[in-house]
């Protein structure tokens, strides 16, 4: 119990941050028309590609002789980039078609 309480206490800022962000996320896409569901899902998909920042961070802190780490890290950055670049480009491609008309 004490460990749990101190965990909360030590991270109270982050907990506030998380709760407020949850509401921002819900607020921000409220009232989205059905038409935009697919592009929005795709756009959100690209945004969570921000994990790549973590992957790069891990790589920057690895030792040169940690071969397994380097291999895994390389793939983490590669997959993260695929998520980010692929995600944003696909979303743009979908939205491009909506634009043409208006």
């Amino acid at each position: 119990m004490e460990a749990f309480l101190s965990l909360i206490h030590n991270n109270i800022d982050i907990i506030y941050f998380v709760i407020l962000s949850v509401f921002v996320g819900i607020e921000v896409i409220g009232n989205v028309p059905t038409v935009l569901h697919t592009p929005l899902m795709s756009g959100a998909n690209a945004i969570h590609g921000v994990v790549i920042v973590g992957a790069i961070y891990v790589m920057l802190h690895l030792h040169e002789d940690n071969l397994a780490g380097l291999i895994l890290g390389f793939f983490a950055v590669l997959l993260g980039t695929l998520n980010v670049v692929g995600g944003f480009v696909v979303t743009d491609r979908m939205l491009e078609m909506f634009k043409k008309k208006k």
Partner: peptide, 21 residues
């Protein structure tokens, strides 16, 4: 894990918006 705010915001935004969607 890294105290990285960009990852936190991006991740939670998508987490909550995605759930609502």
């Amino acid at each position: 894990l890294y105290g990285n705010k960009a990852m936190l915001t991006g991740g939670i935004l998508v987490g909550s918006a995605g759930t609502l969607l």
